[in-house]
Amino acid sequence: MIKVKRKKFDEIIDCIDRYNNILNVGCGGCASVCLGGGQKEVGILNEELRLYYEKKGEKKDIDAYTVERACNEKCFLDLPNVIEKGNYDAIITMCCSAGTQLIAEKFNKIPVYPAVDTIAIGIDRDIGLYEEKCRACGHCVIGYTGGICPITRCAKSLFNGPCGGTNKGMCEVNPNIPCAWYEIYNRLKEQNRLEDIKKIHPPVDWKNQIQRTVVQYGYEERYVNMDV
């Protein structure tokens, strides 16, 4: 699912340098699964920060709390009480950007800083090794491209076949990266459905993108006035 990676240590220091009473919030969902921001990583970061400030001779209280899922208010567990009791100057979060924004919205009196970068929607290749598979463009074409995402895999995110730089199945940006369109072609050919990429599809509307809201299939009635 969502893959996060811890920010550079200096950047985290930069954010929290002026605060003394800080809460570090981890997430037990995707961030924990990708070994990026679960309870263990929160503990590691806190210990590193503690040692850093101890060496500098500054006194800072950095507490830790891990919620079940930061992207759903109902899964915050005891977080509101923890924040109320702790009287914190700042919150650092180790959940994805979505969770961070929900926490920032719910506790909008306190500055919230992410301690991780939300990298990608990806898959688990191995322990601690993840591969980006999706950029959430909102217009999935992998049905036509043999299950290989050209947006993610092609360096230029080309929709309609390879550029002129494809070289023996490799990308011109870096000769170690395989060309996505080369792989798409091969896979479709193997499955005998090359006509899928020859079909003409309507262009994607990239311009003027506004924040997307997902109203799930079958739930439209709750949120959208269907009669209008």
Binding site: K7, E48, L51, Y52, R125, L129, N176
Partner: peptide, 24 residues
């Protein structure tokens, strides 16, 4: 370990995420 189509980070890049050496 499966072959990864993306690029793996360099040693220098990895180091830049770490806190100072003694703390690490």
């Amino acid at each position: 370990i499966p072959k990864n189509p993306g690029l793996l980070p360099s040693k220098k890049e990895i180091k830049s995420f770490y806190p100072p050496e003694d703390i690490k």
